[in-house]
Structures are given as C-alpha cells and as structure tokens.
Design a protein around this nucleic acid. Structure first.
Lengths: 154, 154
DNA sequence: GGGCTGGATTTCAATTCCGAACTCTTTCAA
DNA sequence: TTGAAAGAGTTCGGAATTGAAATCCAGCCC
C-alpha cells in the first residue's frame, strides 16, 4: 500500500540537502504567512502586521531573515506628503516560490476544504478553465506524479 | 518590475484560507523535516530521531500532530524475534505532498545550490531529462507564470 | 515647536525547546 | 532465573523563543 520502501536513513544527509536548506529558511509558520501575504501584494510592515496578527518583534525578525536570504528586497516608497518608508517586495527568488504556494493552496483545497468550493482559484489569462500546479518535462508537457523518478548523483 | 500590484490586505482572510490552514499544519521546521524523511522511506521513531537530531519530546509531539491531522498513519510492525513496535507511514494525504516537497527541493537547487550539481534530481520514468514544477491547464499543457490569473469566488 | 505616523526596539511573563536521563516492555542470552 | 538489550516513548530542569503591550525614533505636517 505504501509506495515508499522502508529506509532507516534518507539517502542524502540533511546537511547537504537542498530541501533541508530550503526548510531552514522558509519552514516556519510566520515566514510562510509573510510569503503568502507578499504573493497577494502586501508590502508594508503595518499591513503585514494587520494581516498576520503576529507580534511586531517577530515580524521584524522574520522580514530581516527573508531580506538577508534574498527572498524579499527592501525598497523605499514615498507617499507624497509623507516621509519615505521601506517596503518589502518579492525578489525573483521569492516570486519563484509562487507555484509551490499555489500547490499548497490546492493541497489544502483537497484535504482541508470541508467540501466547500475553494475561495480562490487560478486560471490562464483570457480563459475560464482552472490551472493547477504540476510537473512538466522540458517541453512543457505534464508528467504525472507516478511517473516521477528520483535520481541520485554519484 | 514587481509583477504583483500593491495590496493593503490579502483578498482572503487567513481564517478561511486553505493555504493558511495548510501552513498551520505543516508550516513548521521539524514537521517538514519529518515529512522529508518520511518521503524518503523513514518510518520508525528512532530513525526519525537519528535523521533529524531533534529532541525526542519534539518528535513525539510532531508525530502525534501529523497522525491526528491524517498525514501519517500509525501502524504496528514486527521484526521476527523482536517485540511489536509502531511505525509511522504516509497516508494518501501525506503522499500527495510529494510534488510540493520536490518543488521545494528544486527551488533550493536553483537558489541555494552553491553552483554544485544537485545531489538528487527528478526525471520522468524512462527518460533522462529533468522535470520541473510548473502550472498546467486541464489538458496538461504548461501555463507560463505571467499568464496566471487568480479568481475569487463570489 | 508639537503632534502624527509608520517602522522598529524594549520589556517581561508565558510558552516552547533542548538535552540528558529515566521508564517500560518484550526478547534473547547466560 | 536473572539480567542485559533494544525501541519507543516520558520526565525534568535550564535555555531560548514567543506574545502582547508599551516605548522609542525619525521625518513630515501645521
């Protein structure tokens, strides 16, 4: 029934596993919620704070981590008549997490959705049909999950 | 430059957002590392502990959460001549996170990879070319990131 | 100057985490 | 029959992190 054969250890030590490294950066409740908000267009400190409802200390710290890691870029914006403020904009590095967060959203729709229609869905521009996160080969054709093979180097 | 227009709040309140709900369950360092190990075939308490190096109390708690949430199933295994022990195997719900963890791995390969060849890569069965996470339409054709539109219900 | 505003820091109790030792149960070995 | 081993936890202090609120701080307005 379980597709995965028993292993006592993973084939890659967590120290040099890029998945483990990724988890070190974004594997955190608040960090993920910040990225969620950022992908919806939130950029300012107080807006993040209102959105997440987290302590300002935590928000401040997490934003710093994300900027240092390169997922967010700290820019300055200026509303006329107000002083300049920093805003936190997704970099290309952060933007490229979008398929993953959409994938997580769709996973939640399936397994946590309580039968309701999902509150947000995704379509191709100019079309009404839904799109989904998936794997594709180099030519852009879908590869079904059961066709995925892992290959170890060396 | 930034593709995402400024927003003061996200269009969906975190309370009834399936992405936020997902993050509540698996948005945690140790939880994600447990799932990583589980997807590599690790099943037993002490093996998880050796793999993650986390306190046994934390592991015990996280496993309980994952079992309660339905991602792991607690079964009993018996090595001949040894007493029966519990093991934690991925349910269908947990297995369906695999594409997401593969996506995170590849994101790490691109952005954290330090120029080395990734220690693990993914291909389509019977092929040698790499696959990648992307969006597809219902027919399985790739949709480029700039063509994605979010649609709110209601 | 004095108030306002949006970032960020300080403070401190409450929680969570860590690490090591300890428990409990069954099986094997002396 | 006693005892050692092994696996899966639990117990227990001390350390670190979190949460909530108050405070600070810099520039823009009047």
């Amino acid at each position: 029934m379980s597709q995965i054969p028993l292993a006592r250890r993973s084939p890659i030590a967590p120290e040099n596993c890029n998945l483990a490294r990724t988890i070190e950066i974004i594997g955190d409740r608040w960090t993920l919620l910040i990225l969620r908000a950022a992908l919806y267009g939130v950029r300012r400190f107080d807006d993040f704070q209102a959105e997440l409802g987290c302590p300002r200390t935590v928000l401040s710290g997490r934003l710093k981590i994300l900027v240092d890691a390169g997922l967010l870029t700290r820019k300055t914006y200026k509303v006329p008549g107000k002083r300049a403020r920093p805003e936190y904009v997704l970099s290309a590095m952060g933007l490229s997490l979008r398929p993953i967060l959409v994938g997580l959203t769709q996973w939640g729709d399936v397994w946590l959705g309580k039968g309701e229609a999902p509150p947000i869905s995704f379509t191709k521009a100019g079309s009404k049909t839904a799109i989904r996160a998936a794997f594709v080969d180099p030519e852009g054709r879908e590869v079904r999950p059961d066709q995925i093979r892992a290959v170890l180097r060396g």
